[in-house]
């Protein structure tokens, strides 16, 4: 067991974890952050995407011990003071989710994409979301949501 201490969605947490524990399992099982989900076992789907020190990562691809000392944000910590993040709002407005299983990862990845490129073209959005699979929406409204959020953030 290894002791790790980190900030998750603004709260400091500290636990003993087995060295092989994946960050996503630590979030879900130890912390109860079940908003973040698992969709695959090959790091292909992006359903588990969270932010670690401001960068998006696939949390199934990071060991909990690697996140020691880091600041993590999950979908559950994205809204602030009861205000939805513009990307969350845009997903709702543009009907960019159906079953919603890919949605936490898709939103976290979109936030990261816009942080890097506040004014992406359709092409850049599509490539920026390539690591996140959605089986329901056909992506069209997700792309539209990212565009809409970009506009809102810029203005």
């Amino acid at each position: 067991m290894t002791r790790i201490t980190m900030t998750v969605d603004g709260a400091t947490v500290s636990d003993d974890v087995a060295p092989r524990t994946l960050l996503v399992h630590y979030l879900r099982e130890t912390l109860g952050k079940t908003g973040t989900v698992v969709g695959c076992d090959t790091s292909n789907c992006g359903a588990c995407t969270v932010h670690l020190d401001g960068q998006s990562v696939k949390s199934c691809n990071v060991l909990a011990v690697q996140a020691d000392g880091a600041e993590a944000t999950t979908i559950e910590g994205l809204a602030s003071d009861g205000e939805l993040h513009p990307v969350q709002r845009a997903f709702h407005e543009c009907h960019a989710l159906q079953c919603g299983y890919c949605t936490p990862g898709m939103i976290m990845q979109s936030v990261d994409l816009l942080a890097e490129n506040p004014d992406p073209s359709e092409e850049q959005i599509r490539i920026g979301l390539e690591g996140n699979l959605c089986r329901c929406t056909g992506y069209q409204n997700i792309v539209e949501a990212v565009r809409t959020a970009a506009k809102e953030v810029r203005s």
């Binding site: 079940t34 979908i75 559950e76 969350q88 989710l97 939103i107």
Partner: peptide, 19 residues
């Protein structure tokens, strides 16, 4: 109409069986 279902799904307040 925007969907009623979305609020919980975009904020991670979900009830998947694995949760």
């Amino acid at each position: 109409r925007r969907r009623k279902e979305d609020q919980r799904l975009i904020t991670g307040r979900t009830r998947w069986t694995d949760n």
